[in-house]
Design a protein around this nucleic acid. Structure first.
Lengths: 216, 216
DNA sequence: TGAATAATCAAAACAGAATTTGAATAATGC
DNA sequence: GCATTATTCAAATTCTGTTTTGATTATTCA
């Protein structure tokens, strides 16, 4: 167990391990991935994992934290600005943009997708820091568009509808690609579509509840 | 390897194994689940897996096929009947209803969700028999609502939007429950919401393209 | 009924992977 | 420069889980 970590080469080993582990865990999953596959790809000795992370699961947890911080860092500043529609478009663009951001490693979203489908102890951090805040944010945008007359229950459902469209594209992109590769090719078109589709539905919802008791 | 399988007790062993394996695979995932956990739960000897399925992965494949056939069997007959809106509602009700069907084992959707997020060789069957036909079906309903003026590209995107709302609820229900347990409590309310949300968006899309060249 | 075959079982063998070890090497601080 | 501590390494070890074995029991059908 290292007490002090000020060696720059040692930090590099650690970094290489996280990067290689991210790739391998994303390809194979936590349990199917082996220490040897990871250390081979990182070009380090197997004992390095125990030395730097104590065991395989701690390495996995570090990789998840890393994926999380990379994702959180890239949020654009453009929040809660402009019209409701602009807010919605900005949010959708931020989430979808994640998928097309080639400056970040591609394994991030795959790995987070695995964790969301088959949770380990690391899920808490993912939900608390990434998923829940975003779900809340969508709720606030939806409330802004739907207006104060729409009951909270409906706002929550509508937020889920908006959120689901983005979620699928980011965390099930491989499945989408398999069903229809073309749909993922045009990122801006997708952002535009999700925004307009959702706006139309939300404006209709607002109208339905407008002016006291709602119809039907 | 059994050449003849006409023993009723042996068939029962096979059935118990698939049932127990379904539960354990859904709880732990293919790789984390152990033969022993499965055979203990089924109350049979470990060698039974090799005897009946030759190996762990063949058992897994049999479980996936079973989950698939259970899901396909329960489709309601009420297809392509009534107005477009009724078709859409019927489809949403069918998919969402899957989640609330207590006559079928609860591990089905969890297991299929795992397979969709972390594919194995068994994914092909799931996509070909369940996912793709349903995606196509949604596309045909969406085309019916949007009308012939809307370009195919937009129809595909809109179908994805509709499909995503259902997909998330079924295959990420644990995540949804974690974010907001209430939203899943009212199945009929959900079906109604998704139908109305989508109808409003699709009708707006139809209008946008109505009468020759579309606006903006 | 009893020979042939199917199915089950406990225990053993095997395989693959995680972890530990102890030595060797590199870096650090006095 | 040297003692101390950190890091890396190849090999050994331990651990965990899958698969096989060979004996035993149950079933089938002539």
């Amino acid at each position: 167990m290292p007490n002090v970590k000020n060696n720059v080469a040692a930090q590099e080993t650690r970094r290489k391990l996280i990067e290689a582990a991210g790739e391998v865990f994303a390809e194979r999953g936590l349990h199917a991935a082996t220490i040897k596959q990871i250390t081979d790809r990182a070009g380090v000795n197997t004992a390095a994992i125990n030395y730097h992370f104590s065991d395989k699961f701690e390495l996995y947890a570090a990789v998840i934290r890393h994926a999380l911080s990379l994702t959180l860092e890239r949020r654009s500043a453009a929040r809660t600005m402009g019209s409701h529609e602009q807010q919605l478009r900005a949010y959708v663009a931020e989430v979808i943009g994640d998928l097309y951001d080639s400056s970040l490693p591609a394994w991030r979203t795959t790995l987070l997708g695995h964790e969301l489908a088959q949770p380990t102890a690391a899920l808490d951090a993912v939900v608390d820091e990434l998923i829940r805040p975003r779900a809340r944010f969508v709720q606030s945008i939806v409330r802004g568009i739907a207006g104060s007359k729409v009951p909270e229950k409906q706002v929550l459902r509508a937020a889920l509808s908006v959120w689901a469209q983005c979620f699928i594209l980011v965390y099930n992109s491989e499945l989408i690609r398999r069903l229809n590769p073309d749909v993922l090719r045009d990122s801006e078109g997708l952002v535009e579509h999700i925004t307009e589709f959702s706006m139309a539905a939300l404006v209709a919802m607002r109208k339905r509840y407008q002016g006291g008791r709602h119809r039907r």
